[in-house]
Design a protein around this nucleic acid. Sequence first.
DNA 1: ATTGAGCGTGAGAGCGCTCTCACAATCCGT
DNA 2: ACGGATTGTGAGAGCGCTCTCACGCTCAAT
Lengths: 352, 352
Amino acid sequence: MAQLAARNGRTRTVTTLEEVASRAGVSRATVSRVVNGSPKVSPDVRRDVEAAIAALGYVPNRAARSLVTRRSGSIGVVISEPAGRLFSDPFFPRLLRGISTALSARDLQLVLLMPASPADTERTADYLAAGHVDGALLASLHGDDPLPDRMVRAGIPFVVGGRPLRDMGTSLVDVDNRGGARSAVAHLIARGCRRVATIAGPADMGAGVDRLNGYRDALGDANRAVEDRLIETADFTHEGGAAAMGRLLKTSPDVDGVFAASDLMAAGALAVLDAAGRRVPDDVALVGYDDSPIASTVRPQLTSVRQPIEEMGHEMARLLVAAVEGDDPIQRRVILATELIRRASSGGRRQP
Amino acid sequence: MAQLAARNGRTRTVTTLEEVASRAGVSRATVSRVVNGSPKVSPDVRRDVEAAIAALGYVPNRAARSLVTRRSGSIGVVISEPAGRLFSDPFFPRLLRGISTALSARDLQLVLLMPASPADTERTADYLAAGHVDGALLASLHGDDPLPDRMVRAGIPFVVGGRPLRDMGTSLVDVDNRGGARSAVAHLIARGCRRVATIAGPADMGAGVDRLNGYRDALGDANRAVEDRLIETADFTHEGGAAAMGRLLKTSPDVDGVFAASDLMAAGALAVLDAAGRRVPDDVALVGYDDSPIASTVRPQLTSVRQPIEEMGHEMARLLVAAVEGDDPIQRRVILATELIRRASSGGRRQP
DNA sequence: ATTGAGCGTGAGAGCGCTCTCACAATCCGT
DNA sequence: ACGGATTGTGAGAGCGCTCTCACGCTCAAT
């Protein structure tokens, strides 16, 4: 066995195919076949080889394998989020968990990339384009992100999570933001709200735009006009939501229902309503989005739209693996359904 | 240039050292020296080679390099957290961000591993022990995690983040949980609280134990006795904190100060105090821990202990890189300072 | 002039694996 | 019993890189 002198004086032993082969009395090629599950190995030989592998604790060397197969066995996951949502919302841990379980089932490594600056993004793009990974998952792209273009040019398969504003027709997994928002607003209308306002997300993010459209859809469904004065835009944060609610109370004191495009904004709105002496849900019914932990932390607890985030990660990984392994060049788009979670802030369950 | 037929019909070109060498009119070895920054290359040759590299867009093949250097160029980061804290606290995104920036500056890949079950943990251990990474970072180990043992046996360098309960004397980075808790409780005492209770974290986690000890320290500093009835244990969650506060109000209605070992528990306690008609901070002053987003979301905002989490990630990476690259077998332990953030829940800034 | 050190460069081996191809052994149908 | 298909196995090339070693050159010291 090769003695690999570790840098700290300890010694690590490494077993090679060759050694397994000689112990089992077969050739390297045969051991390779056993390791890779080829069917063309007789049962007795297979048994002997497996015994030798177990006895020696053999583990294939990934680098050597990659060198010849031209596959790295790893997938890049890019999270290019400038701290804001990254640090206030458990979205990314959940997404990563979903991706991780799907990839490890395929014995693929998850290489995490978190560019923190435009220069970083450039380096990330270089890294991915250099072919160091077999494919990439791009989460929460912002408007002008150069990554998709670079990937296309480099010919690296990738899947985008969350619809980017500038949709390029690439493979995509998203949650049904529009449908979720629509059901949230429909719920407020069904509950009896006459003036339903919305605190929309940023207009430069797919989720922001889609949820606003869902709001419009629901009003249309109920044959109501969309009034500009009832639409305020914020940045998904607590402070932004509070400010937007303040503006709303000033311009439209008659609102009796608010759909906030994130729980954080809903919480901010809640604080402002509270301070203004408006009771929730009696005077103003409130619905958030994301069903984040904060939704069940504030009082009253927030009715909110739950998204299948882990499933989204799963699905992204599944699509990418299909693109990498299969000869399937088809662009696929998956939209996952959301679920409205009814809590006290909108008067709980729908009143008949 | 080698034509690499991508599986989707597109074609990718790959440049090798050999091609760069022939274009620059030198040998492979010389190009290798330029790429790796060896000083033994004459300026003119270096210039020619660099020009050829740029012209061909050459990028070294990591697999081939790994095969001979016996370094993978990647670091495993293990987050073995069973969903609870993972999804409610931005701890991990921040830690990952810190680790990521430190590693990418060294051109090391971050391979993320998120075992979701004991079987998964076993596979993760196998993976790491097989030497597929140059080292590992283990975040938030739980009591009986088999990882450290396996790593030691396999001779893979690693650094632990957050003191595990069963401390094995390995390299470690932690925040000063004990000191942070101590300063939080000292703050309550200085503010004039006479009966300071604590809602402690789980006794099977280092952070839980350390923060409880910090509570004891502060009482001792003030020459006060530690009363068991003033110590309730919970699981770091909102619900747990609420339940603990409920018990506390029943057994010790005279409490006028509470130190909760997490913001989530503090928020739960706040809701219960509210419901019980106790005003915060006037009747009961409250301090949390983590300075998570929720601390500034609830009303009144929570005084809390802020931890330098990104720095923790940085430091972990730094230590590991030193262990991997240097011939430094020394076990190092770094404890990072915390900071008390004063807000309304404890009456704001210290009253003179 | 002669030696030796020093420096830049090239030749070539080899890292551990996969995969093609050739070959030997077995099987079938006639 | 015989040719041809089928099956399991081994030999060997080669993936792209690093690294050791030898070689030729220059230059200072003798």
